[in-house]
Design a protein around this nucleic acid. Structure first.
Lengths: 121, 121
DNA sequence: TGCATAGTTGCGTCACCATGCAATTATATC
DNA sequence: GATATAATTGCATGGTGACGCAACTATGCA
């Protein structure tokens, strides 16, 4: 299969390759927030989460919003306080599916059935 | 555990939370290249891979370099041609580990045993 | 009603990055 | 050596995003 053919055969794998999802995880501050929140194993407020990183409160609020919109967190409001929580199941399932999409394949030649460059023994 | 305590307890999970890795996967063009290359299940040249996306050849070359430096691809040169290949095992293992780090925990309360928000017992 | 707390949003700034084009390097072929 | 092909790199540009500050909204409390 050529890359072009692969591009045309956009199967179920592609839905996993969501740039927005990875973009949400591509910032060090957001990863720290996600990491802390994951370790806490309980919902945390924005104020609490601001303690674990060295940026402005408003920045934390924005980052949490980004993580939520990307599907990594959920939020619930109680009075003035907003609690963010990790979507454990969703993330576990997503990464599990990603792992499967990279299951080691049978080794194939670079140019199957050809005599040109890249031919394996 | 508070987020601050979680931040101080930087354990093995954090090494998985590598911003560079996710940044490499946060661009639509790079994801397309990775997807095509994964589906091909064989090493492909830069020229081949240029067919599957609508950007300049030089851009593809740069993206493949980024993916390689981030540990997602390996390259090998044969004559004038550079072949890029997916690091299937590495990616499978990485995502597997990420999935495990989000294994669904026992449900805990927001404020275990206390009346004030975020305060530790 | 007045004030304090929790959080979001607007705005300006700075840095980074994706892109295309052109120049360059490296290798193969004539 | 001359030329063609494969790929990388320099450079300019336009766009995006992280950040801090300030203003604003929303809720709780006296």
């Amino acid at each position: 299969m050529t890359p072009l053919e692969a591009a045309r055969a956009c199967g179920r794998v592609d839905s996993l390759f969501d740039a927005e999802f990875f973009k949400a995880m591509s910032d060090a501050t957001r990863l720290r927030l996600l990491s802390c929140l994951t370790k806490c194993r309980r919902p945390c407020s924005v104020t609490e989460l601001t303690e674990c990183c060295s940026v402005d409160f408003s920045v934390v609020s924005r980052h949490l919003g980004i993580l939520e919109r990307a599907g990594l967190l959920t939020s619930s409001k109680e009075g003035r306080t907003v609690f963010y929580e990790v979507r454990y199941r969703h993330l576990s399932d997503t990464f599990q599916a990603l792992a499967r999409s990279f299951d080691v394949p049978e080794r194939k030649t670079k140019n199957p059935g050809k005599t040109r460059i890249g031919r394996r023994s």
